[in-house]
């Protein structure tokens, strides 16, 4: 029994749990996105309002810009070599589409970054 005590104590001292939250980019301000007017707002005005996009995609002579803010929440536990965790990543994302004259035609928005949640490794987010 005594032979087990030292390894057991070492194993217990090297175990633990943690929570971690990670953000990618600053949150998109909904008022700024809502102020975009298809048929009127230009690409230059969008960049002035929202800043540099995360991605620019060519669509023939037209184009689309992506703006994204991610929130990731991770909870986990570790025991020496073994790590268990549960990671949930949700995003605020906006795509703006422009015609060949760089005038806004469409806006698509998803706001779910705030729904990211912590959960134990053995539970589901659904």
């Amino acid at each position: 029994m005594k032979r087990l005590l030292l390894p057991l104590a070492a194993a217990l001292s090297l175990s633990g749990c943690f929570v971690q939250r990670t953000f990618v980019n600053r949150p998109l301000e909904p008022e700024r996105v809502q102020s975009l007017v298809p048929g009127k707002t230009t690409a230059a005005e969008v960049v002035q309002l929202l800043g540099a996009p995360n991605e620019v995609v060519q669509l023939g002579r037209r184009s689309a810009y992506r703006y994204e803010h991610d929130q990731e929440k991770t909870a986990g536990l570790f025991l020496i070599l073994f790590l268990m965790n549960n990671r949930d990543t949700q995003s605020d994302r906006t795509w703006v589409f422009f015609d060949e004259n760089d005038v806004l035609t469409h806006v698509g928005t998803t706001r779910e970054a705030d729904t990211a949640a912590y959960a134990t490794p053995w539970s589901s987010h659904e």
Binding site: P7, L8, A10, A11, L14, I80, L81, F82, L83, M84, N85, N86, R87, D88, T89, Q90, S91, E112, T115, A119, P121, W122, S124, H125, E126
Partner: peptide, 24 residues
């Protein structure tokens, strides 16, 4: 346990079980 402890000390080997949720 001693072998596991020895391996983990320099953090050279780890096994990860992960549940991942991303977007809806």
């Amino acid at each position: 346990l001693l072998v596991a402890l020895g391996l983990s000390t320099p953090s050279c080997l780890s096994v990860t079980w992960q549940r991942t949720t991303s977007q809806h």
